[in-house]
């Protein structure tokens, strides 16, 4: 299980990475922590001609706060964010579910967003929180809302020549409450179903991962306790739950109903 040949470029700064990305076009991949890409390369599921290693770009290494948002640049590892879990209550709840200590130590936050696995925790959080993805190409910068960024299973709004420079997550406000839970086959596995909830006043927002090809978002301006079971059942049936090796469509719907209730209760209590 060895990768196909690829050229390798260690970029010292972002402009070098972007011009290499521009020149190589679709055949290049950005290599950050490599926790998802590495496995795909080793299995030859992915055969890029060039890997552009961005992990030595110092400017992308530190989390910062900016205009009531948390800015997490491309080289910040999941473990580094977890160590600053004081920064956001939802991240503190969700990040321990992301892989294992050993993969979080190298896996990056932006890498997980770029990989856009529908079962992953970070895309789910980004979607729930209404985060943004800051994208750069050699000549352009643009910002995309999380809801628009995820286009499908491992498909994003990123175009050839572009990379994620950072993700921005609005800081939690005092009146917001968060909850997160998921079920996988084992601890650290991809979620069969993951749900995250946020309540702000009467408004309740729920995102579901592991079912559709992208994080699914529902929002209720008000939701009476008595209506919760029906609302969750509607949600469960409205998503594209399917059978796979690890779970049935029915089980996924069961989890949406049951885990949904748990997170809603948690943010409502």
């Amino acid at each position: 299980m060895k990768p196909a040949p690829f050229d390798y470029l260690r970029a010292d700064d972002i402009s070098a990475a972007l011009s290499a990305l521009h020149d190589a076009g679709e055949d290049a991949r950005v290599l950050a922590g490599g926790q998802s890409l590495g496995a795909m390369l080793n299995m030859r599921l992915a055969k890029p001609s060039l890997l552009i290693d961005i992990m030595h770009i110092e400017a992308l290494g530190a989390i910062r706060e900016e205009k009531a948002a948390l800015v997490i640049p491309a080289c910040v590892t999941q473990e580094a964010l977890l160590r600053r879990s004081d920064l956001h209550p939802l991240l503190a709840k969700a990040l321990p579910w992301t892989g294992h200590v050993q993969t979080r130590a190298r896996g990056t936050v932006c890498g997980s967003i770029a990989h856009a696995d529908p079962s992953a925790e970070l895309p789910l959080c980004l979607a729930l929180l209404g985060g943004e993805v800051s994208i750069r190409s050699r000549r352009k910068r643009r910002t995309v809302q999380a809801a628009d960024f995820f286009r499908g299973m491992m498909l994003t709004d990123l175009r050839p020549g572009e990379m994620i420079e950072a993700v921005r997550i609005p800081l939690a406000r005092k009146n917001q409450r968060f909850a997160f839970t998921e079920i996988g086959r084992r601890h650290g596995d991809f979620a069969i179903v993951a749900v995250a909830a946020m309540r702000e006043g009467d408004t309740l927002r729920l995102t579901v991962g592991g079912v559709n090809d992208t994080p699914a978002i529902r929002e209720w301006a008000t939701l009476d306790t008595a209506d919760i079971p029906d609302a969750l059942n509607d949600l469960a049936w409205s998503l594209d739950a399917r059978d796979d090796l690890h779970a049935t469509a029915r089980y996924r719907r069961d989890l949406m109903r049951n885990l949904g209730r748990i997170v809603i209760e948690e943010v409502s209590s």
Binding site: I183, N233, D234, W237, S238, D243, A247, A249, Y251
Partner: peptide
Amino acid sequence: SPARLMPLIGGEEPQPPAGAAPRPEPASGG
């Protein structure tokens, strides 16, 4: 697996809401 046990616990699944489009059941083996 939990997916196998869940139907044995919960019995019949709650029905889809009225008006929801029926989903094609995948072929056996999924």
